[in-house]
Every structure is written in structure tokens, then in C-alpha cells.
Amino acid sequence: MSKTRTPAGRHTANVVSLVAGLIFCGIAFSWMLIATEVLSTNDLAWIVPTLLMGAGITGVVASISRNKKGQRR
């Protein structure tokens, strides 16, 4: 397994960690909105699917852009 060299102080993004972080941030933000009564628990029917779709789309875009950068070399 060869390691790709990156400029000093930079490293490649881990897509799985990015998507997991987005999901956790979305859950925390949803909880905050429900706790402050901006949203009700009935709103979870659209919040959770939207959160998961957004994290999934972000993961796909990050994977595609990472693969395209690897092909240019």
C-alpha cells in the first residue's frame, strides 16, 4: 500500500468520519431545536430523513471528488 504525499500540514479527508460527524451534528442540532420548542417531536418524521439524505449526499460528493483528484496524477 503506497502512501500519497500531501503538502506539509495537510492530510486526506476521511469520508466516513465526515459523514458520521455530519450525522452527529445534525442530531445535536435537531435536539436543540426540539428542546427550545422551535420544533416538535412530530417534526422528526421529516428531520431524520432529511439529515440522513444530506449526510449521504455529502459523502457521495466527497468520494467522487477524492476519486477524481486521484485520477489526475
Rank of each mutant, 00 (worst) to 15 (best):
Gly26Phe: 04
Phe29Met: 11
Leu33Thr: 04
Leu51Ile: 04
Gln71Asp: 14
Val61Gln: 05
Ala45Ser: 14
Trp46Cys: 00
Arg10Leu: 14
Met53Lys: 07
Phe24Arg: 12
Gly70Thr: 12
Trp31Leu: 15
Ser30Cys: 09
Thr50Cys: 11
Val60Ser: 08
Gly54Asp: 12
Asn14Glu: 11
Leu18Trp: 02
Thr41Ala: 08
Phe24Tyr: 11
Pro7Asn: 06
Thr12Glu: 14
Val61Ser: 07
Gly70Phe: 13
Arg72Gln: 11
Arg73Ala: 13
Met32Thr: 10
Met32Tyr: 12
Leu44Pro: 00
Asn67Ile: 13
Pro49Arg: 04
Leu44Phe: 02
Gly59Cys: 04
Ser17Arg: 09
Gly9Thr: 00
Ala45Tyr: 03
Val60Trp: 11
Asn42His: 08
Ala35Trp: 06
Thr6Ala: 08
Lys3His: 15
Gly59Arg: 00
Asn67Trp: 14
Thr4Arg: 12
Ser2Ile: 09
Leu18Thr: 06
Arg10Val: 09
Pro49Glu: 02
Arg10His: 10
Phe29Gln: 14
Gly56Thr: 02
Ser40Phe: 06
His11Asn: 15
Val60Gln: 11
His11Met: 11
Gln71Phe: 15
His11Gln: 15
Ile57Glu: 07
Pro7Phe: 03
Val19Trp: 01
Leu33Arg: 08
Met1Asn: 10
Leu51Trp: 02
Pro49Phe: 05
Arg10Trp: 12
Val15Ile: 08
Val16Ile: 07
Ser63Gly: 14
Asn14Gln: 12
Arg10Ile: 07
Ile47His: 01
Gln71Tyr: 11
Met1Arg: 11
Val38Lys: 04
Ala62Cys: 04
Val61Met: 05
Ala20Asn: 13
Met1Tyr: 12
Gly59Ala: 00
Gly9Asp: 00
Ser63Asp: 09
Thr12Val: 14
Arg72Lys: 15
Ala20Gly: 07
Thr12His: 08
Leu33Met: 06
Gly56Phe: 04
Val16Arg: 06
Lys3Leu: 14
Glu37Pro: 00
Ser65His: 05
Asn14Ala: 10
Val19Pro: 00
Ala35Asn: 10
Ala20Thr: 05
Leu51Glu: 01
Leu22Gln: 08
Trp46Thr: 02
Asp43Glu: 01
Thr41Met: 11
Leu18Gly: 07
Ala8Val: 10
Ala20Gln: 07
Lys68Met: 12
His11Trp: 08
Phe29Glu: 12
